Simulated assay, not measured.
Amino acid sequence: MLDYIWFDDESPILQQIPVEYSSAALIFSPFIQMPEGWEKAKRKHDYEHIYPNDDEIRRKGKAVSWEKVMSSCGLQTHAELVLALMTSIGALRDECAREDLAELLHENINGDLYYPSEDHISNFHIPGLIKVLGMNGSNRFYFAEPIVENSGFLDITEASLQTVLDEAAAELVLTDEKMDFVFMSVYDSFINVFLAKDKNINDLVQRMGWESMVCNESTYISWYR
């Protein structure tokens, strides 16, 4: 089974994926909107920053698209939003950082709107994952956590996926039994990589309702620079 792919900046993504896969897409993890006043009710001190846990996100959170956040912040492209996000968490420094974009984002992220899930696969993707992983007749999915060397098979159910996402380390791979599809988290980022043997990956991500960018021959993992 596929345990992990480390994407480097030296060559495009499509040149680094296993030969049996013909297409790839970058899946954007949605921002998280909690009910009005949620953070204030949870805070014990004025200076305390509260981030919802997985269970709270599933029960009370709503997905907010990158397009909506870009519009409210005055950011023009997905790349600008990534630069703003990664600068604000310290993942980009020195000449790569864009403090101007991070400031724009900070000015417009307030109240009960939170950054997307960092390093992990978003809980909002669970319904689509259930459909994709079982699309070609698989009843189970395979998961692998390379950092902690944990892997195994589980039934394709909402409960199983919730458990894996809740307990997973920062790097996680999900694939169906036939390995037709692969879904991977990416460290220090707010995206996931989706691989498919089918070339019509754009149609598939649209059907799942995933906000995404389909990779072409010149798309690098650092596509936003």
Rank of each mutant, 00 (worst) to 15 (best):
Y21V: 11
R93E: 08
C215P: 08
L2N: 09
E145V: 03
W210P: 05
L195F: 03
V64N: 00
Q162R: 15
P18E: 02
D9Y: 11
I50R: 12
T175Y: 04
R140W: 07
E158W: 02
A170N: 10
F31V: 12
G137T: 05
D180Q: 08
R59V: 11
T163D: 10
M70L: 05
S71A: 15
M184R: 14
V132D: 00
E217P: 06
M135G: 01
D3K: 15
S218H: 08
S122C: 09
L154Y: 09
A196S: 15
R98F: 01
M184S: 14
W210H: 01
H125V: 11
N192F: 07
D166P: 02
R43E: 14
S72K: 15
A169K: 13
C215T: 12
M179L: 03
Y4L: 11
L165R: 01
I147K: 08
M208Y: 14
V214R: 04
N139V: 06
N200W: 06
A63D: 02
P12K: 03
E56N: 09
E149W: 03
Y187M: 03
T219R: 02
S160H: 02
I156A: 03
L204G: 05
I191K: 02
L26I: 15
S29Q: 14
G152M: 08
L75C: 09
I32D: 08
S218M: 06
L195G: 10
E99G: 14
T157M: 06
E95T: 13
E56L: 06
G74D: 15
N53A: 00
Y142Q: 12
S22H: 15
N150L: 13
G128R: 09
W38L: 02
F190G: 01
A196M: 06
G74S: 15
W38N: 03
E99S: 06
D3G: 13
F31T: 13
T157V: 04
Q16K: 10
Y21W: 12
E171Q: 09
L113A: 11
F28T: 12
V205P: 07
S160V: 06
L101V: 09
T77Y: 05
S212L: 07
L133V: 06
G152Y: 09
T77K: 11
S212H: 11
I126N: 12
V69M: 01
L133H: 01
R58K: 09
A196L: 02
Y142S: 09
N200S: 07
G134D: 03
S218L: 07
G209V: 13
L92I: 05
R58I: 13
E118P: 02
G128N: 15
D46E: 04
K199H: 12
M208H: 08
I17R: 07
D9F: 13
D166R: 10
D198F: 07
S138N: 03
S88P: 00
V193R: 04
